[in-house]
């Protein structure tokens, strides 16, 4: 049975960029454990020779012609932004290179 510690929840929250509260750490630790225990049943299926399915439809090779299509104006692009400056999205300082 999978067990989930508060530390693991904190790690998941960091990966998922969620500034969770202390109370949420406890809540999610217990809930995730219950849910994971339930869904771990997928492991019961002996599936060594079963290929995984990532797409429900069997399509392959769907391509677009390399032809331009009208996009958005700068004003439309920025219309939902919290802050803009010089035609760009203004965001808080970035700590590090990607």
């Amino acid at each position: 049975m999978p067990t989930i510690s508060r530390a693991e929840v904190a790690h998941l929250a960091r990966l998922a960029r969620l500034a969770v509260t202390e109370e949420e750490l406890d809540l999610f630790a217990s809930q995730l454990e219950v849910i994971l225990t339930s869904v771990a049943r997928v492991g019961e299926v002996a599936a060594a020779d079963i290929p995984p399915t990532s797409h429900a439809v069997g399509l392959t090779d769907v391509f677009r012609a390399d032809v331009t299509r009208p996009g958005l104006t700068q004003q439309q692009a920025l219309s939902g932004a919290y802050a803009t400056e010089d035609g760009r999205f203004r965001v808080p300082r970035i700590l590090d290179e990607s």
Partner: peptide, 15 residues
């Protein structure tokens, strides 16, 4: 289908 061009005003080749 946005144009792949260099040096145009910011956020004008977007969709």
């Amino acid at each position: 289908g946005c144009a792949n061009v260099f040096g145009t005003p910011p956020n004008t080749q977007v969709c």
